[in-house]
Simulated scan of single mutants.
Amino acid sequence: MRPGVLAVILMAAPLLTGCLAEPDPSPTTALGSGPAAAGSAPSTSAPLETTQSSNKAPVYWIGRSNSSIFLYREFRDVPEQENPVTRALRAMMSDKPLDPDFFTPWQNPGKLATSISGKDVITVDVSEDAFNSNLDADMAGRAVQQLVYTATAAAASSGLIDSGQQIRVRILVDGHTDYVAFGHIQLGDLMTRAAGMVAPVWIIDPQENTEVAAGSVKITGRSTLSGGKLRWQILRAEEDGTKVPFLTGETTAAVEPGQAGLFTLALTLPAGDYELKVAQAGTGDQPDQNEDSRAFNVR
Rank of each mutant, 00 (worst) to 15 (best):
M1G: 13
A7R: 14
L16T: 11
T17Y: 08
C19I: 14
E22Y: 14
D24C: 02
L31G: 12
L31Q: 10
A36L: 12
S40T: 15
S43D: 15
P47R: 07
L48E: 06
S53E: 12
S53D: 12
R64N: 05
R64H: 02
S68T: 08
F70N: 14
L71C: 06
Y72I: 05
R73W: 00
F75V: 00
P79C: 12
Q81K: 12
P84Q: 06
T86V: 04
A88F: 03
L89S: 11
M92T: 05
F103R: 01
F103Q: 03
T104G: 12
W106E: 08
I116R: 06
I116K: 07
S117C: 00
G118V: 09
V121D: 10
D125H: 05
D129G: 11
D138L: 05
V144G: 12
Q145F: 00
L147D: 06
L147W: 01
A151Y: 02
A151M: 03
T152C: 04
A154L: 08
A156H: 01
A156G: 05
S163P: 12
R168N: 07
D174E: 09
D174C: 03
G175N: 05
G175Y: 02
T177F: 03
V180N: 10
A181I: 00
Q186G: 15
G188R: 01
M191A: 10
G196V: 03
V198Q: 05
A199T: 09
W202P: 00
I219H: 05
G227S: 08
K229P: 00
W232G: 09
I234A: 08
E239S: 15
V244P: 02
V244E: 13
L247Q: 15
T251K: 07
G258Y: 11
F263E: 09
T264N: 09
T268L: 13
A271P: 12
G272M: 06
G272H: 06
D273G: 11
T283K: 13
Q286K: 14
D288H: 11
N290A: 10
E291Q: 15
D292L: 00
R294M: 15
A295M: 03
F296A: 07
